[in-house]
Every structure is written in C-alpha cells, then in structure tokens.
Amino acid sequence: MTELRRWVRALSKHVALIVVAVLMIYPLLWMVASSLRPNDEIFTSPGLLIDTFDFRHYPDGWNALARPFSTYLLNSAIVVAGSVVGNLISCSLAAYAFARLQFSAKRIAFVIMLIAIMLPVHVLIIPQYVLYAQIGWINTFLPLIVPKFLATDAFFIFLMVQFIRGIPVELDEAARIDGAGHARIYLQIMLPLMIPALATTAIFTFIWTWNDFFSQLIFVTKPDLYTVPVALRSLIDAQSQSDFGALFAMSVISLVPVFLVFLFGQRLLLRGIATTGGK
C-alpha cells in the first residue's frame, strides 16, 4: 500500500516535471524544425512536423555574410572567454571585501555599486562610446572585455557577497588564528567554498555576453569583428526579403556552445558540494 503510494507520488512528480519540460523545450525543437523548412512555411507553421526538408539553410546561412559564420563564433568566443575570466576575478575580489572586510565608506561604496546598475544602458552608451573612442578602443574587443576585469557587473559582486555571507565566519577566524592573511583566506577558503557561486557567475556571464546585442553592435562596427548576435541580425531586414531559414539555422548553431557550456557548468555546480564534503 505504502509502496503503491510512493510509486504514484513519484510518477505524478515526474509527470509534472515532464509537462513543464515540454513547455520549456518546445521553442528549441521548433527552432530546429524551422531551420529545416522552406522559408515561406516558417511563419505559417507553429507545429513541429516538416513537410519538405530543406537543409539548404545551413550552408546558406554559414556563408551569408562577408565571412563564414565561424568567424563570428570565434569573435564571440573571444569576447565571452575574456568576460568570464574578468568577472570571476574582479567580482570575487570585490565581493570578499564587501562581505568580510571592515573599511571606511563601505556602506557608501556598496550603495554606489548597486546604483551603478540602475541606469539603463541606452543613456550610457553614447558617453561610453565617446570615452572608448578617445582611447582608441572602438573596433576592438576591449570595450566589451576590459570593463569585466574592472568589476562593472555589480550583479555578480552582490551574488557573491550573498554567498560568502552564507559561509560560517568561524572558518575565517580559525584561519586567522593560524596566521593566514586576507589573501590566503580569500584564495584557500573562500574561493573553494564559493564554487557554486563562481560557476553561476561563469555560466551567466557566458550566456549574457553570448546573447548581448546592443553594446556589441555599437562598439564594434567592422564586419570582420562582428559577434554572433550582430551577425544574426544582419541576416534580416524589415523592408526587403530576409532569409529567415538561414537565421534559424545559424541561431541553432550558435546555441550549441551555450548549451554545452551549461551542461559542463552544471557539473561544477555539483562539484561545489563534492569539494566541501557536503557540509
């Protein structure tokens, strides 16, 4: 009896999860289906069944612009790699200071940090462009990467602060009694214990940077340096005919790295408990 009840319960849980999963995965399947349809069927078919397979979109989209699509994938990869490394280093440093150090003007600094992410990008982009143009950074990846090394994504500082606060302060104190300075506490205690937060930061930075359109559009105008989102938008135009099949095909391709990173990054989220011994 209890066996049956447990079984029913597990089943209903899985049914619920599967229903949600279908809602989640449907768009991806539809995107794949659309990338294999003739152009004029895309906008009339919300379903997944394909009447005529059309593999043309993949080679077409790959070669649609001045360079093969691999160029844009590589450009995005460079920007993303730089951003991830930058955010991990700079945000964890700042987060340690905010969470564990006592210093003057800490409250003001914390408030300024949060306020800095409250202005919409659209009123900041022009002064930023002027600034970067002045130091010759336009048409390089520097405006997209360097700010990450300077902890401008306060989002992640705040995230890490919250995580560090979840780490018992006795651990630091024990280390300090052993003669460890802040550098050692940060490197040897905080970083290993923060792996879930670091993995979250890495995954989010990856995905947001990979999908970010506006700043990449504005700061990089040379087509050879276009990133994936900018290249994708260059495939469509509102007033003339666009190659939506190619857009969908290249969208699918550009999702592959993101999905792989997420699958891999997940393991890191799990490794978080492994190294802390499931504390």
């Binding site: 280093i89 700079s90 440093l93 700042a94 340690y96 200071a97 150090l101 006592q102 210093f103 003057s104 800490k106 600094a109 940090m113 090394f149 300077l150 902890a151 500082i157 300075g181 802040h182 940060y186």
Partner: peptide
C-alpha cells in the same frame, strides 16, 4: 577602518 589597506587592494579593480 581596520581593513582599509586590504580593502583598497581587493577593491582596486572595482
């Protein structure tokens, strides 16, 4: 004010 120096280093990038 205890950790001012350390904070200056940790917060330098920011």
């Amino acid at each position: 004010g205890r950790d001012n120096k350390a904070a200056a280093i940790f917060l330098a990038p920011w």
